[in-house]
Write a protein that binds this DNA or RNA. Structure first.
Lengths: 338, 338
DNA sequence: CTGTTAGCGCTTTCAC
DNA sequence: GTGAAAGCGCTAACAG
């Protein structure tokens, strides 16, 4: 009980050395005979000595904390990216502090204010759309900062992600080439997710280039979910004035919800209507009729992020921006029309 | 640039007060005239003063950090619990440090060793199965500790969760009452998830009480996924010696994978075979044929956890253990047989 | 290889 | 209501 615990001084006394030797032994730095080191380590263990990181951090004016802000943990995309980053970062001795901003610039900004007080070794934020103050703070902090998931020519510091506009455009072109010309988009609250908006823009542009355009842009408020897709689909299909020939969803999960709605209405996919998702999530592995979607490189983003961060924290900087490719998955939920 | 930034002394000088007044102003504690306070706050803002948390933490021998260890972020169950806890905890001024243990007792133990160095305000771990050393460390630390998701009569400190054995048993009894007698279980690596094992035990016990038992216990290594369910289902169905009448899956997502496998084989559900999931996840909202499953109170666990933690950190302790109810969802993936 | 001397930037007393 | 002194527990820098 108590937590008061032994401090470095107690270990030093018990081991009959100076506190500096204990400090060196605990950190595993060199400049200590093997015997002294192991003796110190043994007494430290016996005393249940736990070094105080706050004291260490204060003395070095640095910490091993890496702050990471993602919009949500519900979207498995971020869980996958985080999972991929974690291993290398932990192995390099860093600790992760994960925050969810719920797609709020304001919450992200507040988090930056808070986390900076811990003198983190690096910061990771999602996307390239931040409040002005956030950008300023990050740029002025001198802390290596990585923007993930989206990509930009003008990162705050470092960036790794995909070009969402291009991904949307590529899918649009693909659909145009299949003969589709009356696409509808189904997603969440307008403006909530800047990356999603870029994809919609790219998608719309591709169709406009072919003389058509979005016949519907349906937003269902609330978090991204299977049910949002079903509801959005229902609303679009209830509107008989502009019957679409293909439904493009925010993610595969919404797309699956839409697929279920179509099935419930006896609408055959892809014969009567096409369905398109995004991300190529795990559910697509088990569907008898694979969704047409865009495969995003989550693992690669995570892995590259970790590598760049570790390098940056050791003062090495190579590429500032890395844009990874998105691949179109030709599923069975769309077909050649006309 | 630089991060060196202003320190409390600079603000004090600029505002023409002592550093103590600045300290008081920044923390919002009383004992300061309104004018002085606002003047200090203004100059702090002008100087972009960011209090150093490590220094504060060192001086007070405490921090506002709450360490949380969950097995994985892929399972939306944990994402939901975390999401529910986050709000109240942040509002009370705490910061969350989330760790994933990947279901490893050893990783959990290593994390406890690391996190304790930050003098966290509280610690949250998943389940009640920990290494001996972990339990000792947590009990001896004097830090409020909460075990979530599982439940026990003998918590390290506090606990909030569900009785997994009872949940498994209840589902087993329900299936027995429907007339099922040849259940198969499909999950991940044996022993990986202690909670899942408890559920399987409860399930098996219920059938044994009715004179039957599990005809198969199929484990697919690797993370919980849609595809693991599909594969597990395929393997069970390929084994013609012990044809089950109902398939019980680790989670709804595996169950959905199984459902797809059955569909691919022309096996009608629930006519030819029953399917049972766990958790009542979002996908169940959109399936035309809702899965029979157990609804787990994730939101309630998160909410209760936050409440108990906040109370415990202010020295208030009421119930040590809270066990929440699990509700059986009577879906269309099972039926009355015989 | 080991120890000594100064802090790191803040908060806790305890005066005034 | 405000301030001065004395650390919190550790590490950088230097000496030996």
């Amino acid at each position: 009980m108590g937590g008061r615990g032994a401090k470095i001084e107690d270990v030093a006394r018990a081991a009959g050395v100076s506190i500096m030797s204990v400090s060196r032994a605990m950190r595993g730095v060199e400049g200590l005979s093997p015997e002294t080191r192991s003796r110190i380590l043994r007494t430290a263990d016996k005393l249940d000595y736990v070094p105080n990181r706050a004291a260490g951090s204060l003395a070095t004016a640095a910490s091993n904390l890496i702050g990471i802000s993602v919009p949500t943990l519900f979207d498995s995309v971020f869980a996958e990216i985080l999972d991929e980053m974690r291993g290398p970062l932990l192995r390099s001795g860093y600790e992760l502090m994960i925050e969810t901003s719920d797609y709020s610039r304001q919450r992200e900004e507040a988090w930056i204010e808070r986390i900076i007080k811990w003198s983190p070794a690096a910061l990771v934020v999602c996307g390239t759309d931040h409040s002005r103050k956030s950008r300023e703070r990050l740029a002025a902090s001198g802390i290596p900062t990585l923007e993930i998931w989206d990509t930009t020519d003008d990162p705050i510091d470092l960036s790794v992600g995909i070009d969402h506009d291009a991904a949307g455009y590529a899918m649009g072109r693909h659909l145009v080439s299949l003969g589709y010309c009356r696409p509808a988009y189904i997603g969440t609250t307008k403006g909530r997710d800047p990356r999603a908006e870029k994809r919609v823009q790219g998608l719309a542009r591709a169709f406009e280039g072919a003389g058509s355009g979005l016949v519907a842009d349906m937003r269902i408020d609330g978090p991204s979910s299977f049910d949002a897709g079903r509801q959005g689909c229902a609303r679009v299909l209830n509107d008989l004035t502009e019957w679409p020939d293909v439904l493009c969803f925010l993610t595969d999960h919404l797309a699956f919800g839409g697929l279920m709605e179509c099935a419930a209405r006896g609408l055959e996919v892809p014969e009567a209507i096409g369905i398109v998702g995004f991300n190529d999530l795990g559910i697509n592995d088990v569907l008898p009729q694979k969704l047409t979607t865009s495969r995003t490189p989550r693992a690669q983003i995570g892995e590259t992020s970790a590598r760049m961060l570790i390098a940056a924290m050791s003062g090495i900087r190579k590429a500032r921006t890395v844009a990874l490719p998105v691949e179109i998955v030709h599923g069975k939920s769309t077909r050649k029309v006309k």
